[in-house]
């Protein structure tokens, strides 16, 4: 599958772009993020993949994405669901993490329509743009591997420079880990993990996070900011309970602390969390 590339409305002197990822079936936060981004003046919206998993009622996110004109990248979850694979290929290594991931995946793949699976199958693995004269690459986990985790504390500058070199990019935006961060390298290139909008960032807050990117074409600069968005997380939790999803998932939505997918966390990120 080829990448998507091209010049866009951000060819204007200045523009604001919203980039998010990790929707995880959370249609309530997705609607809130789209609304927030529009209110803040974002003219283009991008989603870096993983529409399913964790939350309830998978088919509810697709009309929101399409109606808002969100340009989407295919995540590992989207590839698996789209192709009716046996598991999400999330990249976990711990039996407990994999057990919970399988619950999410089986729930999601059974409730995603054939039409939406076809839509997921057709998504590109990455998207290229040129913003402010900078070569921008949008990917899911990393540009070399869809399910690679790029954690802030476990990813060296040297490795990020290699990724940017290998993939001819000045700016890279990814998701997959669920925790947002920005690294500005000493050569002025930048890597941004936009976090996830489907569940909180293991920080004890119930908001979810996405990124706003201000493009200044005259100055040739990109400036990314992480934005928290509050949403009706209690209604989502009720819906999850009604769907019979695990109490552990609901607890995360209600408290902001991860209860699953913990063993993949590096020491720094793990220590900041409750569990």
């Amino acid at each position: 599958m080829s990448n998507v590339s091209g010049r866009t409305t951000t060819d204007r002197a200045s523009a604001r772009v919203a980039i998010f990822g990790g929707v995880y079936n959370n249609h309530v936060s997705l609607a809130a993020v789209i609304r927030d981004a529009r209110e803040r003046g974002a003219t283009e919206l991008y989603c870096l993949g993983d529409m399913g998993g964790f939350g309830p009622s998978p088919d509810r996110v697709f009309p929101l994405l399409r109606d808002a004109g969100v340009v989407c990248v295919q995540g590992n979850y989207d590839h698996s669901v789209g192709n009716d694979l046996d598991d999400c290929a999330c990249g976990y290594t711990d039996p407990r993490d994999n057990a919970f991931a399988q619950i999410s995946y089986d729930y999601t793949v059974a409730r995603t329509s054939d039409a939406n699976k076809a839509w997921l199958r057709a998504l590109p693995p990455s998207i290229r743009r040129e913003w402010g004269g900078r070569r921008v690459l949008l990917a899911h986990g990393s540009p070399r591997r869809t399910n690679e985790f790029l954690w802030e504390s476990a990813t060296s500058d040297a490795f990020l420079r290699r990724l940017l070199d290998d993939h001819d990019a000045d700016a890279l935006f990814v998701t997959h880990t669920g925790i947002h961060w920005t690294r500005e390298l000493d050569d002025c290139r930048v890597v941004v993990n936009v976090g996830a909008i489907g569940r909180p960032a293991n920080d004890g807050r119930t908001e979810v996070w996405y990124s706003l990117v201000d493009v200044d074409s005259e100055a040739g600069s990109l400036r990314a900011a992480h934005v928290p968005v509050a949403y009706d997380h209690e209604s989502l939790a009720r819906e999850m309970l009604e769907e019979g999803l695990p109490d552990e998932f609901v607890e995360t939505i209600l408290t902001g602390w991860w209860t699953t997918c913990l063993e993949i966390l590096p020491a720094k990120e793990r220590t900041r969390g409750r569990y």
């Binding site: 990813t155 060296s156 040297a158 490795f159 420079r161 990724l163």
Partner: peptide, 9 residues
């Protein structure tokens, strides 16, 4: 040497 080769960890 590893840093120059883009080592991750």
């Amino acid at each position: 040497d590893a840093e120059a080769r883009g080592v991750k960890d």
